[in-house]
Design a binder for these strands. Structure first.
Length: 505
DNA sequence: ACGAATCCTG
DNA sequence: CAGGATTCGT
């Protein structure tokens, strides 16, 4: 059974970690990479054991520890200062400083990883032999012997065991140390960003609600009140977004002002995707640092969107992961766990989220159902090498989208009839329609992108189809919707050739 | 029979 | 949004 990621439980990470670490995973590539990972770590240990003083890895770890200590010191110092006394002008400066710290941590990570890879390349085969030799003692290894006790026994497999223990210990420590440092910076950065984001003008009812009742005036659907206040004007947002981050590259400018061009999105996907950065461990240095930039940027972005400041860390929504509803506890657990894995996971999620955005835009909100979807899937599996979890998640997401879309259509069509609309011609969908707002609320709550006109057209046709079908009492037929589905499918615009083209990959 | 889509539920 | 049951299409 394939393990899909349910995302709102607290053990989410644990599960994902497991799915990542599971050696019996059907996914060959995963277990391969994990073996490689093991081998690499083991090689580090070997290197250390061989020459405890003259090796780069140990040095790097010291570096990491030192760096972490410095960061903690820095944090303590800052904490002692009453927040409000900090001059506002220094915010940018602080932000910059944090950014630099972050970058230095990232550099450190790169160094570590490169060293690891280097050693790995040199000794991989040897390491495999060792692994094989050890597995001959598998019966003796079943004790699951553990890290806390490092028995150094002379000779043979005894020292192997010791090595293994040491390996585990070091691995944990290394991971913890470095990622804790990063998390520290990240937390601080997030906080700074949240505090810094310019107050957003919440669009109150006055302006927006008035035009919103155009199409189906008399009766908005039940949940009209929900989250309306979250709608935020864009201009202030875009300003808030760009100012504090003098990045040479801004990884996640996901079309907050205007829809992104395909090429941009694809470029992004290609640069930052595919997922599994850390599982693959073959990632370019870039892929190590970008997840953070992404996260940071996005937290910034949506702190603006939300127009309200969450307490503590970045809000869950701030991560812009629409399909993943983490609770704050989860987020905290992310911070606490502070593992590379969580980095990786965040990255995966952000990428898949990106893909979804792409799909949404590309397909004008996925009103289409079939062809695009299949193209999508092929692309994910083939070109972008998405694993089954991600793919199935996407499939489910699209499926849910369809459901929601059609449910809304039927609902509003029926309502129109009840309201005494007689002519299909009078049925329309505009950006002011409640119907549109309902959909937008669910899939574009933060107004991340401009919903294409095409979507409106198709939505309108769909609504009209439902309207006339219901008017003609066709809904007595249990499968009356199928006819409508067919019609809508035909409205589906063709997936552009260039998108399918391998030249994109 | 099997994979995909939909329905139903939480 | 995700998981599971059910139905659909081949």
């Amino acid at each position: 059974a394939e393990h899909t990621l349910s995302s709102n439980s607290a053990d989410d990470f644990a599960r994902e970690e497991q799915s990542c670490l599971s050696f019996k995973d059907e996914d060959l590539s995963v277990s391969e990479h994990l073996q490689a990972k093991r081998a690499r770590v083991e090689n580090i240990i070997r290197g250390m054991a061989a020459s405890p003083n003259a090796d780069g890895e140990a040095e790097s770890e010291c570096e990491a520890v030192r760096c972490r200590r410095d960061l903690l010191k820095e944090n303590k110092r800052k904490q002692r200062l009453p927040q409000h006394q900090e001059p506002k002008t220094s915010k940018d400066e602080e932000c910059h400083k944090l950014k630099e710290q972050l970058q230095s941590m990232q550099r450190l990570l790169h160094q570590l990883q490169e060293k690891i890879l280097h050693v790995h390349d040199q000794n991989y085969s040897e390491s495999e032999e060792r692994e094989d030799a050890r597995s001959e003692h598998s019966s003796l290894r079943l004790d699951g012997g553990h890290k806390d006790r490092v028995k150094v026994e002379p000779g043979g497999f005894g020292s192997d065991r010791a090595m293994k223990n040491l390996k585990e210990t070091l691995k944990c420590e290394l991971t913890r140390t470095v990622s804790e440092s990063i998390d520290t910076v990240f937390k601080k950065l997030s906080t700074t960003l949240l505090n810094q984001s310019s107050p957003c003008h919440n669009l109150s009812d006055s302006e927006e609600n008035v035009n919103s009742r155009h199409c189906f005036e008399s009766h908005g659907p039940e949940h009209q009140t929900e989250a309306l206040s979250l709608v935020v004007r864009k201009p202030s947002l875009s300003q808030a977004v760009k100012r504090p981050f003098p990045l040479h590259q801004t990884p996640f400018q996901m079309g907050y002002n205007a829809p992104l061009h395909d090429s941009q999105i694809l470029e992004h996907l290609l640069k930052y995707g595919p997922h599994s950065t850390f599982c693959l461990e073959r990632s370019s240095p870039d892929s190590v640092e970008r997840p953070w930039e992404s996260l940071a940027m996005r937290s910034k972005l949506s702190s603006g969107h939300l127009g309200q400041h969450q307490t503590g860390l970045v809000s869950v929504d701030a991560l812009c992961l629409p399909h993943i509803k983490m609770e704050r506890g989860d987020l905290q657990s992310m911070a606490e766990r502070s593992s590379f894995m969580s980095l990786s996971i965040s990255f995966e999620r952000s990428v898949s989220s990106t893909l979804k955005r792409y799909c949404i835009q590309k397909r004008s909100w996925c009103y289409n159902l079939l062809m695009w979807f299949q193209t999508c899937r092929t692309l994910f599996n083939g070109q972008f090498l998405f694993n089954r979890c991600i793919t199935s998640q996407l499939i489910k997401w699209f499926s849910n989208f369809r459901e929601f879309f059609y449910i809304q259509m039927e609902k509003f069509a029926r309502q129109a009839i009840i309201d005494g609309v007689n002519d299909v011609k009078d049925v329309s969908v505009t950006r002011e329609s409640e119907l549109f707002r309902a959909l937008n609320m669910h899939y574009n709550k933060a107004n991340d992108f401009q919903v294409p006109d095409r979507f409106l057209e198709v939505a309108e046709v769909t609504l009209q189809e439902f309207f006339s079908a219901i008017s003609l009492s066709k809904d007595s037929d249990p499968s009356w919707k199928k006819a409508i589905y067919k019609v809508i499918c035909k409205l589906d615009s063709v997936v552009p050739e260039d998108f399918k083209s391998p030249s994109y990959v």
